[in-house]
């Protein structure tokens, strides 16, 4: 009974916090739109409804939401033990690049799709995980701040993409710009209508993260270290192990996201692409994670909502010539409002 009431009041307080923050943020967007001389109502409608008005809008939203989901997890899980993984971007790139490398190398063997796709996804998971584990290890062993190591690893991953795209082994000789050859058909993933098949893996990942965090000893240890490191160590939880595992899981999810982008969206690696689309997910992943205060269970909803705004923003630019930056700006404003309201008026999410 008390249990039920507790959840009711939690849900209510979350609704109030997020509702208020979103309304405030939409207010800020409206002011900018109005000052720039556009029609406010029209702009708000475009921003919020584009994702739901056409199947194209919806599938675009899902296509953005999937990598964003993984990028958000990449930040959120280490953040549960109060460490910043700024390297979600790099871990995605590294996972994606390794996927392409292995995919192109194994391509000539002509393995069937049922072997190739899971194998390549595993490559993405493991390489992303190991890439992040490096940062966790450096913290555990040498007390190096993961903010620094993950930023450095981002540069490394970015250069790795370019190295692979321009290397003679993988490069497509027919392209002017450095691009790798396309992965073989049996390596690629299909679509349900316009929805990418990677949605299945996103759902599986959501379930697994939920299970790990809520049901397993590992999840309990991560939560405990996040709540109180001293008490956790007093009662036998190994900090070094926990931080390495948390970074590994975060990186593995980012790597899976990168892998899915390669297998389901791009099919090849393009030099410099990391700077545009990849970087976006890295930054928005952090933003989205901050919105949910590092609560992994709230990540899916938040990632979807952020994607709605991203797609709406594209549409604003296309249909009303409103600069897309307005929306980026207002996303930051939303995050700020949520953080302020949450800190000021009690904890929401938990």
């Amino acid at each position: 009974m008390a249990q039920k009431n507790k959840y009711k009041s939690l849900i209510l307080s979350n609704l109030i916090i997020y509702g208020a923050a979103i309304i405030l943020a939409l207010g800020v967007i409206s002011i900018f739109v109005a000052v720039l001389g556009y029609n406010v109502l029209e702009a708000l409608r475009t921003l919020l409804t584009t994702s739901f008005k056409s199947s194209f809008g919806f599938s675009e939203t899902v296509k953005k939401a999937i990598p964003l989901l993984f990028a958000t997890y990449a930040f959120t899980i280490p953040f549960m033990i109060k460490f910043f993984n700024i390297g979600g971007w790099g871990q995605m790139l590294f996972g994606g690049t390794m996927t392409v490398v292995v995919g192109l190398t194994l391509g000539p063997l002509g393995l069937p799709s049922i072997v190739m796709v899971p194998l390549l996804l595993l490559v993405g998971i493991i390489s992303g995980g190991l890439f992040a584990l490096l940062a966790g290890f450096l913290k555990a062993k040498y007390d190096i701040n993961p903010i620094i190591s993950t930023i450095m690893l981002n540069f490394t991953a970015y250069q790795f993409v370019n190295f692979i795209a321009t290397s003679n082994i993988f490069r497509d000789p027919n392209e002017g710009h450095p691009i790798t050859r396309r992965l073989s058909e049996s390596s690629l993933m299909g679509f349900f209508g316009e929805i990418p098949a990677s949605i299945i893996l996103a759902v599986i990942a959501i379930i697994i993260v939920y299970l790990i965090m809520k049901k397993t000893r590992l999840g309990f240890e991560i939560t405990a270290v996040g709540h109180n490191l001293t008490a956790s160590e007093t009662y036998g939880i190994n900090f070094s192990k926990t931080i390495m595992v948390a970074f590994f899981i975060g990186g593995a999810l980012a790597g899976l996201g990168g892998s899915l982008e390669m297998l389901n969206i791009h099919g090849k690696l393009i030099e410099g692409f990391a700077k545009t689309s990849g970087a976006q997910y890295g930054v928005f992943g952090i933003l989205t994670s901050l919105v949910v205060a590092g609560n992994p269970l709230a990540v899916p909803l938040a990632a979807f909502f952020m994607s709605v705004l991203l797609v709406g923003a594209d549409s604003l630019q296309r249909t009303m010539q409103i600069p897309v930056e307005i929306v980026f700006l207002s996303q930051a404003v939303i995050v700020m409002f949520i953080v302020i309201i949450r800190e000021r008026y009690g904890k929401g999410i938990k």
Binding site: F220, T223, A224, H227, N228, A231, S232, T234, Y235
Partner: peptide, 21 residues
């Protein structure tokens, strides 16, 4: 407080701490 409990955790989680293995 500082060494003994997970202060954001429930009583249940706190009782489990140290026995969770």
């Amino acid at each position: 407080i500082k060494e003994g409990i997970l202060n954001e955790g429930s009583i249940k989680e706190n009782i489990l701490l140290g026995h969770h293995q």
